[in-house]
């Protein structure tokens, strides 16, 4: 074979591995785990442990027959509403803490006491206050999700480069105008809080849908567990994981773009500052 051609093939192969190495490794991990579990389940032969292949068939069948659709929609509505409220609340509180640090000092001990309290422990209270409808489920998701948004918002705003903040002050910006400038810079950290919130929300969905539910992925998993339909139960669990994964991946893409923009913004600020300082010194 032509040496140039061999060299070209080698380079292409290396290039593919270089560019897609992480994805390939992740796929190897998933397939490896799949194979191991397949052998374990084949060895154990228990009706409580269906093989991954059977579960995958169930995953596809549930989608084809539409059996799972109602439950996915129901959970998505609750998750989006719960996370949405948590984001708005956590973000606004974070901004407030940034603007008024004394307020943060005043409320931090209380928030630190509230944060570790599980939504499950508060369920009887939520039922008394909000009943057993969708609102209680949304509140449970909200309760799990808002602290991470708050903490990351405060962290993001506090860690914006001093030069950026100083530049706005020099330009005579008031606090609100400063926020307009620095929030986009802090957005990457805020989105990290949102990603953690989404993971927490999906973790809580099963608990939330144990209460007064008649639809939703958490309810579906519970129902199939109670009626010993394990293939469908594991399929429901896989749907929870997959949808959570997709939401996280989507935010990761947005966050990556924000990071690029943040760097660009910082550079612009630095250039602006340098130009301004240059003019001032002259």
């Amino acid at each position: 074979m032509d040496i140039t051609l061999v060299h070209h093939i080698k380079q292409s192969t290396f290039s593919i591995f270089y560019r897609h190495g992480k994805r390939l490794l992740a796929m190897v991990g998933v397939i490896g785990l799949f194979v191991v579990i397949q052998f374990v389940t084949m060895y154990l032969q228990s009706p409580m442990l269906p093989s991954p292949a059977t579960v995958l068939v169930s995953v596809v069948r549930l989608l084809m027959t539409g059996e799972i659709n109602e439950h996915i929609n129901s959970s998505l509505v609750i998750i989006i509403a719960g996370i949405g409220f948590a984001f708005v609340f956590g973000f606004l509180l974070g901004v407030l803490f940034y603007l008024a640090p004394k307020l943060e000092i005043m409320f931090t001990p209380l928030l630190n006491v509230m944060r570790p309290i599980s939504a499950i422990a508060l369920m009887p209270l939520f039922i008394v206050l909000f009943g057993t409808g969708h609102i209680t489920k949304i509140i449970i998701i909200f309760w799990t999700a808002w602290p991470s948004v708050l903490l990351n918002t405060v962290h993001g705003l506090r860690t914006v480069e001093k030069e950026v903040v100083e530049a706005t002050k020099i330009d005579g910006a008031n606090k609100v105008q400063t926020l307009v400038v620095i929030i986009p810079v802090a957005l990457s950290s805020i989105l990290t809080g949102l990603r953690i919130a989404i993971s927490g929300g999906w973790i809580s969905i099963v608990a939330a849908e144990m209460i007064g539910a008649n639809s939703g992925l958490g309810f579906y998993v519970l129902l199939k567990s109670q009626t010993f339909e394990y293939e469908k139960m594991f399929a429901g669990i896989i749907y929870i994981g997959l949808i959570g994964f997709c939401m996280n991946a989507l935010l990761e893409v947005v966050q990556r773009r924000m990071y690029v923009e943040k760097r660009a913004t910082n550079n612009v600020c630095c250039v602006d500052n340098a130009f301004w300082l240059h003019k001032k010194n002259r």
Binding site: P124, I127, V128, G131, T132, G133, I211, A213, N214, L222
Partner: peptide
């Protein structure tokens, strides 16, 4: 009829506040 899933202990507050 709308059925919903509630453990026994959670049914008490639910009927008390009129959720079910």
């Amino acid at each position: 009829v709308k059925f919903s899933l509630l453990p026994f202990d959670k049914q008490l507050p639910a009927i008390m506040n009129g959720s079910v």
